[in-house]
């Protein structure tokens, strides 16, 4: 998997993930993923559009990340997951914990408010 971040504005970081979020893939990005979430005191949008598959390990990574951000009082949102991944998020009930947005403007307004 690959990971990179971009600064959207003073308060929001966008993290772009790409690749399969299975045991191997998550292992590659886990450290950097949690470093970004735990060091910057900002809200975070995770762009999931380049993630074709997600297993329970991927869910765990997102949850740990979201918890760390929420604990600081900041907001966390997932952006445009592919349909299979969206299905996994819904089946596992994660959509009831983490906001899932269909486009970037929606995501920015969700994490800004």
């Amino acid at each position: 998997m690959d990971i990179n971040k971009e600064q959207l504005n003073d308060d929001i970081i966008k993290i772009n993930l790409s690749g399969r979020m299975d045991v191997g893939g998550v292992g590659e990005i886990e450290a950097e993923f949690s470093t970004i979430a735990s060091t910057a005191d900002m809200s975070i949008i995770v762009d999931m559009s380049a993630v074709p598959y997600m297993s329970s390990i991927g869910i765990r990574a997102l949850l740990i990340n979201a918890k760390a951000v929420n604990r600081r009082g900041q907001k966390y949102a997932l952006l445009t997951p592919q349909s299979d991944v969206k299905n996994v998020l819904e089946v596992s009930g994660i959509d009831q914990l983490i906001t899932i947005c269909g486009d970037i403007d929606e995501a920015i307004s969700k994490v800004s408010s």
Partner: peptide, 26 residues
């Protein structure tokens, strides 16, 4: 159903159907 994969209901001679109720996260 706390975040688990949806189980199937299978009636005699029928097609499996997902039990779709989602109660919340794991």
């Amino acid at each position: 159903n706390a975040g688990h994969e949806r189980p199937f209901i299978v009636s005699p001679g029928g097609q499996p159907v997902e039990l779709s109720g989602a109660s919340g996260p794991p």
